[in-house]
Structure formats: C-alpha cells, structure tokens
C-alpha cells in the first residue's frame, strides 16, 4: 500500500519537475535577451537539483544528495559569473 502511494506520488512529482525543466528550456531558447536565458538556466538547475533528490527517494539511497549539492554549488557560481559577464563584458564598448 505505502509502496504504491510512494511510487505514484514520486512519479507524478518527477513528471511535474520535468515539465518545469521543459518550460525553463523554452524560455532559454526564446530569450529574447541574454538575461532571460541566464534566469532560465538558474531555474533549470534548481529543478534538476530537486529532481535528483526525488531520484534519491525513489531508489532509496542518499548518494544522490551529494550530486544535488554539487549541482547547487556549481549552478550558483556559474549564474554569478554569467551575471557579472553581462555587466562587464558585453555592453561596454
């Protein structure tokens, strides 16, 4: 009983997160400007991180936790670097 509840709720949650990643990707493709794409990338990696945590629950191991933490840290650093690049790299002629 509890196994079926868990299976279906995790499955539906993962599908919803997949939907979240798809809509972030559409924004990444559509743009229109660089800051929109970076914002979408930021939302995308957060959804991917949460997806990994759900995988961990589903499989029943906690090894995915470390991967999620690494995604979070790398995503933060890359977004900051890209935002900095927007301020200093492109607009100044």
């Amino acid at each position: 009983m509890s196994e079926t509840i868990l299976f279906w709720s995790i499955l539906v949650s993962q599908l919803m997160l997949a939907g979240a990643m798809i809509s972030a990707t559409t924004r990444m493709i559509r743009g229109p400007r660089a800051q929109d794409r970076i914002l979408a990338l930021d939302a995308f990696y957060v959804a991917a991180m949460l997806m990994l945590v759900l995988f961990g629950i589903r499989v029943g191991t906690s090894v995915y936790f470390e991967a999620a933490l690494v995604i979070g840290i790398l995503g933060f650093v890359s977004t900051v670097a890209l935002a900095k690049f927007l301020m200093r790299g492109e607009v100044i002629e």
Partner: peptide, 9 residues
C-alpha cells in the same frame, strides 16, 4: 516549482 517555471515561460 512547476508553477514557478511556468511563470518564467
């Protein structure tokens, strides 16, 4: 999370 990303789109 899904609603947030939908809002993004």
């Amino acid at each position: 999370t899904l609603l947030g990303c939908l809002g993004l789109a």
